[in-house]
Amino acid sequence: MREITYLEAVREAMSQEMRKNQDVYLLGEDIGVYGGAFGVTRGMIEEFGPERVRNTPISEAAIAGAAVGSALTGMRPILELQFSDFITIAMDQLVNQAAKLRYMYGGKGKVPMVVRTPAGSGTGAAAQHSQSLEAWMAHIPGLKVVQPSTAYDAKGLLKAAIDDDNPVIFYEHKLLYKMKSHVPEEPYSIPLGKADMKREGKDVTIVATAMMVHKALEAAKELEKEGIDVEIVDPRTLVPLDEETIVESVKKTGRVVVVHEAVKRGGYGGEIASIIAESEAFDYLDAPIKRLGGLPVPIPYNPNLEKAAVPQVPDIIKAVKETVQFK
């Protein structure tokens, strides 16, 4: 099967939907001839024209709100928010408007929109362009939150997000844009709320999201040499969350490490750990649930400091060993 990058997979999902459905359009900053800050929309304005690939001023509140207003009146916008850190400026429109309109209006009206936004550290962009703020969004009833970790997942999840009648926050990890995987050419959909087993194993479960899925896979390779068989569950969507797959895996292995790049304090890993603790998997646990997350610090500029701020492969290996060796 053909291999394409995560970035190309995102673009292909959008282009295929836009060819099929005139209501789907794109808006965002520098998404026109520039092709977006990361090049995701490159070539799209040439194919779809400036009416459907709308290059906007640097006005995150207005463009987020314009997406909400147009979704409420029958369009299916895809908003590219240049860096997920900028969600702070669009917050009212996403949290107080998009997420709540349907409920406040007693079920009348719907807001079918996708906010695609690059997240995560590792590019040297420092504190205001490197955050992982997905837990904020996952906290808000009315929003759905997606975090694809592979090109294959990105394409299928983005189609599902575009087809969904609710506001979906779609986090793309910057370090994954260039990563390739097998991706079918034809459109396909991966249901929101369906986790993926990225590796099967029997000794310990790692629940990992986005970039951490790949770090966990690397760690698993190392651990295999020492006879530790790791299972890796990638939730893929935080809201809705596939609790069942996580719980079943923990029941099987009896040991679990939850890892994400976002700051550990108040991070979504706490939610996952709590779900496990509250579930029937609790009785199967042979070791305390372990959480790994970013340190409570803004992402620093210096590459060594930047790396040290978020979990790395050796951190995961260490955490897994501690969990497996717990008596």
Binding site: A66, G69, T73, G74, Y105
Partner: peptide, 28 residues
């Protein structure tokens, strides 16, 4: 709100409805 009748809703956030109006106009 009465979305069917073209009332896209009152809003509890001061200034919150202004971008929504722009979006609805974009649909038009």
């Amino acid at each position: 709100a009465d979305v069917e009748k073209g009332n896209l809703g009152a809003n509890g956030i001061v200034g919150g409805g202004i971008p929504l109006a722009v979006g609805a106009a974009l649909t038009s």
